[in-house]
Structure formats: C-alpha cells, structure tokens
Write a protein that binds this DNA or RNA. Structure first.
Length: 232
DNA sequence: TCATTAATGTGTT
DNA sequence: AACACATTAATGA
C-alpha cells in the first residue's frame, strides 16, 4: 500500500478524523498494516494483547460466549471503527472475542504508541474519549432494549442501527452489505435463530425489510414508523 | 459440476 | 424459545 493510500485511509478512521496532515503522518509512522482472511480470530480473552485495531476494510464481530456456548454479539465493527483492549484503556471488557466476518484490512497500534500519540496530539485523546463515550451510550441503549423490549422491537432497532451504520442507500431502501445470517442477528438481539426467521418474515410481508441470500434491505422510513408505533 | 455443509423455513410442543 | 425436520443456498474440491 502506498504512503498516500495509507494516509487517506487513516483519515477515515473515526479516531483520526480531522487530524492535520502532519498529525496523520505521525500516526502513520507507528501504525502497522495487517490483513486477515474471513474467520480469523483477532481478539481472544485468553491471549491479551495491548493493541488498538483500526478497521479499514471489512467487518469484525465482537462477541461473548457463555459457559453453555451461547454467544452474544456485543458489537459489529466496520470501516472507520476501532476496537481493541489496551492496558489502561479499553474499548471493551477484555472478555470478548473478535472474529473477522469478512476478509479484513486493519491497522494496528500498540498501546504505548497510542498513548504517546495522545500526549503529543491532544486531538487524538479527545477523539478517543468521544469514541468511548459513544460506545457507552450505545451499550446503555442496548441494555434498555434487551431488558424492556420484545424481540420484534429489538430487531427493528438493530436493523435501523445496522442500516445507519453500515448501510448503502439503494432506491428507497438501505442495503446492509454485511453478510449477516439469521443466527448472527439472533446473537445480536438475544433470541433464537427461528424467532429471527419468523420476525423477519413478518417484517418482510409488511414491507419493512427485504431479505435475500444473506443480504438485507431496510425501509428506514417504515422501520422508524413501526418503532414509534410499537416501542416497548 | 457435484457433493457436502451452511442457512433458512416451518410445524409442533 | 426449543426442537425436529424439510428445503434451499453457498462453498469448495
């Protein structure tokens, strides 16, 4: 990858958005590029690495596993997002697995280098705080949903979130390009795969979503309308 | 392409 | 929501 490419890429990462060229170059000097094929386990609680990953291309699923083997997907991380477990600063609980759900292109920042960057460029530290705050806010919302909403509502929330975070507009619909299976969605809202299939079929007949071979189109307008109507 | 595996659809409890 | 089972789609040799 050319130097210019890498800079352009870094500027698309949430953390480094709006940094000056000079600041980006400073990041560039300490960031390593890493590619990994689909299925790679990037984060494993059993082997803690104080590293921050920046996602350029592809998607990484962060999930927890219960002793019974059930999974709960805590977050789906896409282009521009960051994840990782650092020494004194963590984007998660250090109990999560992270798996590449597509081929991915990542940048890797060592803990110490990130800290150095934050000291040298306060804008990076400010961004980091924003990213973490955002994450906290999202988790609170997730908690509320899981505790108080039924599956249908939770799924509607999730579809909207996916559409707004990872979707590309396509006509009056928004396509969610990540290859998510019903099981993946089930792991995100905490229900069974069958329930997702059923509910998705229901929403399909109502014209809120369209599904086909692991792809998903959401009619954001209708989804919002449904949510407003039947929240909780 | 075919064979195998993965994903999805559906009825029953 | 769990289970069993049928059908269909995706994968890769």
């Amino acid at each position: 990858m050319g130097a210019v490419d890498k800079l352009a890429y870094l500027s698309q990462i949430d953390l480094f958005r709006q940094l000056s060229r000079e600041e980006l170059q400073a990041v560039d000097r300490v960031a390593a590029v890493q590619v990994a094929p689909r299925g790679t386990l990037l984060l494993d609680p059993a082997r803690f690495e104080p590293v921050l990953y920046l996602v350029k291309r592809g998607y990484v699923r962060l999930y927890r596993v219960t002793p019974e083997g059930r999974q709960l997907t805590v977050s789906l991380v896409g282009p521009g997002n960051v994840f990782g477990e650092l020494e004194g600063l963590s984007t998660g609980t250090r109990r999560s697995f992270g798996e590449a759900v597509t081929d991915v292109l990542l940048c890797v920042l060592r803990d110490a280098d990130l800290e150095r960057l934050m000291r040298a460029y306060p804008e990076v530290a400010v961004r980091m705080v924003r990213v973490l705050s955002e994450r906290l806010r999202e988790l609170e919302e997730l908690l509320e949903r899981v505790a108080l909403s039924n599956v249908r509502t939770r799924l509607l929330h999730l579809l909207l979130k996916l559409a707004e975070r990872f979707g590309t507009p396509e006509g009056r619909l928004v396509q969610v390009g990540v290859g998510l299976t019903h099981q993946d969605l089930a792991d995100m809202v905490g229900c069974s795969r069958e329930t997702v299939t059923l509910t998705l079929g229901e929403l399909g007949r109502e014209g809120v979503v369209r599904t086909a071979r692991r792809r998903l189109w959401v009619d954001v307008e209708r989804a919002r309308a449904r949510l407003a109507l039947e929240s909780f």
